[in-house]
């Protein structure tokens, strides 16, 4: 039986009816035509589907859409309203942080969520002092971005792009 679903995606409100089996990712892509979130593995292993849900990064492939009824979803597109590139979009371009670009929207959303977590002093497993302030070293960035795979192997430049964005947003 179809259930009603209300989502705000990149600032735009949507009301639709979905089968309960619909994942958030499939609702975005197949039902709402929002192609910014990508389907990579569809099993929560690659991070290509990462979006921000009420400001927090999530794998949209491992969430039923209905769980997030009423939520505000932001994709990489939504981070660039009116075509104005965000800091992360600019630094990904500046650092050449992709080749094919398929994982990039997920990388950008993950980095956006991660920078917010670090700004709130949330530690990672490589943080020496669990109670201290967070310095986003390359090791910290690599650990915090480990949920996003890049099969082109642009990792070195992704770390540089995220590092530059962190620097600029300080």
């Amino acid at each position: 039986m179809a259930h009603s679903l209300h989502l705000t995606v990149d600032g735009q409100e949507h009301k639709l009816a979905v089968d309960p089996r619909t994942t958030l990712l499939d609702a975005l892509r197949d039902r709402l035509g929002v192609m910014s979130a990508k389907k990579g593995c569809d099993h929560g292993q690659c991070g290509a589907c990462t979006v921000l849900v009420d400001g927090r990064r999530l794998n949209s492939c491992l969430a039923l859409a209905l769980t997030h009824d009423g939520s505000e979803v932001t994709t990489s597109d939504g981070l660039a309203p009116a075509g104005e590139l965000s800091t992360l979009h600019r630094t990904f371009l500046a650092q050449d942080a992709f080749q094919c670009g398929y994982c990039t929207p997920g990388q950008v959303c993950s980095a956006a969520g991660m920078l917010q977590e670090a700004a709130e002093d949330a530690p990672s497993v490589v943080t020496e002092d669990l109670e201290g302030p967070i310095e986003l070293s390359d090791a910290e960035i690599r650990e915090r971005m480990s949920g996003n795979l890049c099969r082109c192997g642009a990792y070195v430049n992704i770390v540089a792009a995220v590092s530059q964005a962190a620097e600029e947003s300080r």
Partner: peptide
């Protein structure tokens, strides 16, 4: 416990 939690999965998965 903090370290054990942080050593599991990824940032996105731990948020869910």
């Amino acid at each position: 416990l903090s370290r054990a939690l942080l050593s599991g999965a990824s940032g996105q998965l731990r948020n869910a």
